[in-house]
Nucleic acid binder design. Structure first.
Lengths: 247, 247
DNA sequence: TTGACAATTCTCATTTTTTGAGAAAAGTAG
DNA sequence: CTACTTTTCTCAAAAAATGAGAATTGTCAA
């Protein structure tokens, strides 16, 4: 094992199911001897990536809160997007969840979320990677990727059942300018996604709404599509005029 | 340079003032040659700690969002505390900001924040380290630290003007069970802090309110102190009864 | 206090990785 | 295609990680 991987391996042991680890457990799980594990953990603690918890165990440390805050504070996409999500759910006038997502190397990641009263409970929230090829949020992102980049992103995915179907679907989405998915991830939910593409800022992302099928008659759906699409392009434009140096 | 420090050094170049860096800039700033810098950045990108941005520059990556989410999801202190903060500001009935903080090794860090309408604008928010020896939030934490741990924490601080004064103050706070600070960090603000101490979970933290001096007559202040103290002990108790294995 | 007992750090010869200058390659814009 | 920038690659020398066990520190209960 070498370089960063050594540390990354340890950090990735921590999960929802198992958020605290003793050094002995980490040593076993990572296949390293105790003394090495102690040394590695010590370094991670010194840098704030791990933190001693009770009973000689460790949990993830404060460094992640700090870096996360830094991202929240410095990313114009996030700053503008977070404000926008509030407006969007206020104007939706049906129970729904608004998500801001973005392509990070090879995954579509949710970077902000906002819900109004009665919104569908969802596991999608800031910091969750989205399924790459399912749901409006992701598809609308894939649809607006240059061919070369798309191919690279899809490499990481398990070979697709029908690559051509997806390609055609993405072409259709690009043409229409938005994507609607029905019960594609969660049953009885509709996802409406619109692209946010700002090459100048190196950003390809999406803004999407998740609502209940039962709340959407045809007129409402049309209204929400319009809301989503116009909000997304509003955000894209505002990023163009934002004084960059930044992400 | 060795081990984690090499990576940590690069990551800590990223700041509010300068959130994107080219490899050449990182090389210069860290004193490493280009080829080394490229290698290091490559590793950080591979693990998601950095992310290519426009113009051959880099920004902080998605890994921080993911680990931050993991912490939010798995830390019972945070989970219970975040809910509680909502109740607290609702019951405050004056414009104010509620903060949940915790001692992380050698810093008091804000881990959750919640504001009601008209609340003081503050730079304190999730992910911000608090000044160690000023303000109710921090003092109330220090006051409830075992002597040995306190000494260790204060080591990192620049030598204090008057160590004895602080010690006496902390003794007084411990006796009273809460701390009020007036215009100690921001002018015309009052901070009210109450300790949250759960040795079984390895947690020493605080719950605090920040309000405007002008909004607080004597009765209101007494009410808010009571609210803060009782909410804090409620949280401490709920953590005792929570099924641990966790932080 | 004192004595278990567990957790953590230290030591050091050996093995493995990192380093860095320059060359080569890949990517981009004109 | 061409010039340019960015990025990766190469390899011998230098530096750091490794790991078994010893030494130390910390904890808790009598």
């Amino acid at each position: 094992m070498s370089g960063l991987d050594r540390y990354s391996l340890i950090l990735h042991l921590f999960s929802e199911a198992r958020p605290v680890w003793s050094v002995t457990e980490m040593a076993e799980a990572s296949g390293a001897p105790q003394s090495t594990a102690y040394r590695t953990v010590h370094e991670l603690v010194r840098q704030g990536f791990l933190e001693p918890a009770a009973d000689a165990r460790y949990r993830l440390g404060a460094a992640f809160l700090e870096f996360d805050r830094l991202i929240r504070k410095t990313d114009p996409y996030l700053a503008a997007g977070t404000l926008l999500l509030n407006d969007v759910i206020a104007q939706a006038r049906v129970p729904c969840l608004a998500l801001l997502a973005r392509l990070y190397t090879d995954r579509v990641m949710c970077v902000a979320d906002c819900a109004n009263a009665g919104a569908p409970v969802s596991s999608y929230e800031r910091g969750r990677p989205m399924p790459l090829t399912r749901g409006a949020t992701s598809k609308v992102v894939l649809a607006h990727l240059p061919a070369r980049r798309l191919a690279k992103v899809l490499e990481t995915e398990a070979p697709l059942a029908d690559d051509m179907t997806l390609k055609a679907e993405l072409r259709a989405i690009r043409k229409r300018g938005f994507c609607i998915s029905r019960s594609e991830i969660d049953k009885d939910r509709v996802g409406i996604g619109a692209p946010i593409v700002v090459p100048e800022a190196g950003i390809v992302g999406s803004l999407s709404l998740v609502a209940f099928v039962k709340d959407l008659d045809e007129a409402t759906e049309r209204r929400l599509v319009l809301l989503t699409v116009s909000s997304a392009s509003l955000l894209a434009e505002s990023l163009l005029t934002t004084p960059q140096p930044t992400s």
